[in-house]
Design a binder for these strands. Sequence first.
DNA 1: TTAACATTTGAACGGTCGTTCTAATTTTAT
DNA 2: ATAAAATTAGAACGACCGTTCAAATGTTAA
Lengths: 197, 197
Amino acid sequence: MNKRRYDSEKAKVEIMEHAVSLFSQKGYNQTSVGDISTASGYSKGHIYYHFENKEKLFVLLAQQTMQDWHNKWLYKECTYSTATEKLYGMAIHVLYHYQTPLLSSGQELASNPKSSPESVQQLYNLAIVPMDAYRAILQEGIDRGEFVNGNIDEWTVLLGTWLGGLCQLTNTQELKALEPLFNQAVTIFLRELKGGK
Amino acid sequence: MNKRRYDSEKAKVEIMEHAVSLFSQKGYNQTSVGDISTASGYSKGHIYYHFENKEKLFVLLAQQTMQDWHNKWLYKECTYSTATEKLYGMAIHVLYHYQTPLLSSGQELASNPKSSPESVQQLYNLAIVPMDAYRAILQEGIDRGEFVNGNIDEWTVLLGTWLGGLCQLTNTQELKALEPLFNQAVTIFLRELKGGK
DNA sequence: TTAACATTTGAACGGTCGTTCTAATTTTAT
DNA sequence: ATAAAATTAGAACGACCGTTCAAATGTTAA
């Protein structure tokens, strides 16, 4: 009775893996259920056996991707001892693990009037995850006396938009080549945090 | 003979105006030629009398939008006397005149394998326009002794990505409310430019 | 074995979309 | 006025796409 009765779960996972890959490469609208079917080797009908529709499938994958990003950060965070180090570490973490193409293709879905409001809301909620992570580092820096006392919410948005903007470069450039740029952004930002005046 | 022979030009302009509006609101894929036809009041067939296809129409509009942005900047630029002032002015100019929704919906087109390579290239070339404008300000600042001598290309990319990232906020927030944020970004960036060390 | 249930397929439907084509209408030139 | 050219409309086509459905196949439990 504890034995796995079917291998339907394996099929589900395979479908999700191929779907993530396709959504990342081609975006939401340009990836058809047929594409996912062909890539995964399962019929279109089978995809609808596992997922209610294309929209729900995408939202699930986006949530899973964001959670994965956050979990990996929590795991890595312990290896840094100061908020300053964490900031540099976070920048590199974003560079290598934030799945920009997938997450930004959610805007296609969100901008479609036919998309269900719940799905749109769920996608917008995803943006909170990294912001909270940034804010936590800034708060810790202030508490530890590393950073001056400033407007945390403003800092969070400024840092978030900068890293987000830099991530767009991953579409056209090698990740490794972008490391100095991400580090330099943190260096400049730190001057504000440490009280540049 | 110099008299305007038809009013076909007026129709063309009206179509373009409605197309810009629709592409901005709904993105490239979600805006159909039928939508543009309905909004402008001209038949679908008439749209194809003026434009080769939907793709070319969009590229033309994106180029025109970017050129308009640049022209407005050149006009406004003279009102500032220092590179520092220009930097603040540029940030606000980007906030109010950079048509983020339209220009970022070009990524939908660019990520579609069926799009013609020329169109994709033309869209990528658009990104050069603001970057050159940023670079010009930084170069002037160095020449005038306002900014220290640094890596101009790196600075240009860092500034460009930051402003680009901040522009994403225009999707969800009032422009006026974002002014302090754009100014603060420039203030922080200026510490680097003026030799924070 | 057999009945119940889980899994998978593939055809089919209804809808949308970009594009083409033909014909009608309007304007220009003679 | 009339022929030629420009302009506009609207129907039609072919392709694709998300979704549904009925049937086929495989698995479990009794």
